[in-house]
């Protein structure tokens, strides 16, 4: 890779001695000037609309800004104190961590299986690939809307199926009169009402996160699998290693770095996600599925306390810094490799 960068000043080309070249062209032909000039629009955009907001986000969280009065008066750690003492915030923090980490543990297991399936050749593979990618490729809000309808209080097809199989409904094995209800699930009811019970609503959010990030992890793993050199596989084959031994001792260790990448993106995307919870539950029932991003929105925009909203959102920062460090390490490794 470094061959290209090493040559950046070298191309010794006849045009520099061409007397017809006007002055302006000379200037623009110099890499040292043209480079920064071409970078300028992107850099201005990033500093102006990512850098400044990031600084403002930190400043707001130490101020008493509201939607009405946006002047920044220093109040120290007061916002953080107020925020941390709030029970809903603690719930949001717990949920955010729970959703991100539990969903990614499940995702990495499923993604390994799915990537193994998709690396084999079979009929209808293109269709299967298109279908399993759908949760990632469709706009988030619209995809989650599908689940919102699937989990409807009255018309959920899951309930209908369970009723047909006599799992829910009166006189079934889960009739609450017959035995103590498990979790908070009144199976004796006509409907489960997935999004109206705290535990089930959390389970629903978790499921949607798994559903949505599984395709991403899978394609990342697939890319990693194709990169395993054929001679390594051949060597294992010749040594007479069984399929499972090859999987455990050859493939998985070689895939470990790329699995780390997949998990990292999964955690970043689920940890900072707003849309799934907003569309599915709006943080309900009674704030039981609230996450940092949604709670920041309800406090900061709808509740018009910009300062507290910013303080809540700032709790997203540590995970991102950690992710950035890991990414940089990986990048350095791939450069030296």
């Amino acid at each position: 890779m470094s061959t290209a960068t090493g040559r950046s000043e070298t191309p010794a080309i006849a045009w520099s001695e061409d007397a017809d070249v006007p002055e302006g062209r000379y200037l623009l032909d110099r890499a040292g000037l043209l480079g920064p000039l071409m970078l300028l629009p992107a850099i201005i955009y990033i500093i102006g609309l990512v850098g400044i907001p990031l600084v403002l986000a930190v400043l707001y969280s130490f101020s008493n800004a509201t939607v009405g009065d946006q002047s920044i008066n220093w109040v120290g750690l007061e916002n953080f104190r107020t925020v941390v003492q709030n029970a809903t915030f603690r719930m949001a923090l717990k949920n955010t961590i729970l959703f991100a980490f539990v969903s990614q543990i499940i995702v990495i297991i499923l993604a390994n299986i799915l990537a193994l399936v998709l690396s084999a050749e079979f009929r209808g593979k293109r269709l299967v690939r298109f279908l399993v990618m759908l949760p990632w490729t469709t706009p988030i809000a619209l995809a989650v809307l599908g689940w919102f309808w699937m989990l409807d209080n009255v018309a959920s097809p899951i309930d209908a199926l369970m009723r047909m199989l006599h799992i829910i409904g009166p006189d079934t094995i889960f009739d609450p009169k017959a035995r103590a209800p498990i979790l908070d699930i009144p199976f004796g009811d006509r409907n489960v009402r997935w999004l109206s019970k705290p535990d089930l609503a959390r389970l629903a959010v978790l499921t949607v996160h798994v559903w949505r990030t599984l395709p991403l992890a899978t394609v990342i793993l697939l890319a990693g699998m194709t990169a395993i050199p054929q001679d390594v596989k051949d060597a294992a084959e010749i040594d007479g290693a069984s399929y499972w031994r090859q999987l455990i001792y050859v493939r998985l260790p070689l895939l470990a770095p790329i699995m780390a990448v997949a998990v990292l993106y999964g955690i970043v995307f689920t940890f900072t996600d707003f849309t799934v919870v907003y569309v599915l539950t709006r943080g309900g029932p009674v704030d039981s599925t609230q996450v940092l991003a949604t709670w920041a929105y309800f406090k900061g925009i709808q509740g018009s306390s910009l300062a507290q909203g910013a303080a809540i959102a700032l709790f997203l920062l540590p995970i991102l810094v950690a992710a950035a460090i890991v990414m940089l390490r990986l990048a350095r490794r791939s450069e030296t490799a």
Partner: peptide, 21 residues
């Protein structure tokens, strides 16, 4: 790589100051 990392800064972290901008 630094520019790519900017992509990972999520809108959920920036939307509050961004509304002001």
């Amino acid at each position: 790589i630094a520019i790519f990392l900017v992509y990972l800064v999520p809108p959920t972290l920036l939307f509050i100051p961004m509304t002001r901008i």
